[in-house]
Design a protein around this nucleic acid. Structure first.
Lengths: 149, 149
DNA sequence: CGTGAAATACAATAAGC
DNA sequence: GCTTATTGTATTTCACG
């Protein structure tokens, strides 16, 4: 699904990664095309799978979940969470799982209210494999826009 | 900044994390309050720092950046990227840096067009500390909403 | 804090270049 | 493929409970 993207598409992607709630009118002003053209381009980007969604970013600390951690997993084959992510459906503290090459099969990002809750979660994760955890102190670069090649 | 959140706030946060472009009218229908009330609540959440932004999610593969990797860093003190993130300002392939407890000082997420580009980036990162990288194969759980405590 | 009614701004068509 | 024009909604402000 490698759609060719021109400068207008790139500008729209940059703007929407910066602020996903910009109106088509506002986007039109910024990229210097008409609003209907913006709407058409954005829908094309969504349909092509370049834009996969729009999300509000919530600060875990302000939301009362001040304990964020990354957990490296070495799963036991049949219970591997990368092949059965539904095993974590009842763990809302788990907010992201990425599967990796190498001896670490995945990294799990968790967001809990306390160290105690983190400990209980680690016990649950340990049922699927060896865990190694580190707490997140801060996020020096919380995000950067993905620029199309 | 630990604001008390009620059921309306929680419903709004959940909906906006699912789809950040929902209109106030649509949100009003879902949470059963009037549109002006929704607008007021959302602005309060933004001002309180609970909502820190709204971002379009771009699929790196569809954007021609098919090589995603996580790099674990053990930085040499004075060049540590967690205390000087501006050192990475000219590395647009770096899309996230989180600082951790433990012997790994940070994990860096990078998004490149090719293995060759990843290799060049790793050389640059190696100037700041020891690196250990793993490629991202897939994202079994790309995200989950952060639920207020 | 919440709603309801006003004016302004925006989104979605359709038609033409 | 982009634009202008039209229609219908959505958003915002303000007055009020």
């Amino acid at each position: 699904m490698r759609t060719e993207l021109d400068d207008v598409d790139r500008a729209l992607l940059e703007a929407l990664q910066e602020d996903a709630r910009l109106s088509y009118n506002e986007l039109a002003r910024r990229v210097h095309v008409s609003p209907p053209t913006v709407a058409q381009r954005v829908r094309r980007l969504e349909h092509a799978g370049v834009i996969t969604g729009y999300r509000a970013v919530v600060d875990p600390v302000a939301a009362g979940r001040g304990v964020v951690a990354l957990v490296r997993m070495k799963c036991y084959g049949p219970r591997c969470i990368t092949v059965h992510p539904e095993l974590l459906d009842d763990c809302p503290e788990v907010v992201e799982v990425v599967r990796l090459t190498g001896d670490i099969c995945s990294v799990v990002k968790v967001v809990t209210t306390s160290i105690g809750e983190l400990e209980r979660l680690l016990v649950r994760l340990a049922a699927h494999g060896e865990t190694s955890s580190a707490m997140v102190l801060s996020t020096p670069i919380p995000w950067r826009p993905v620029r199309p090649a």
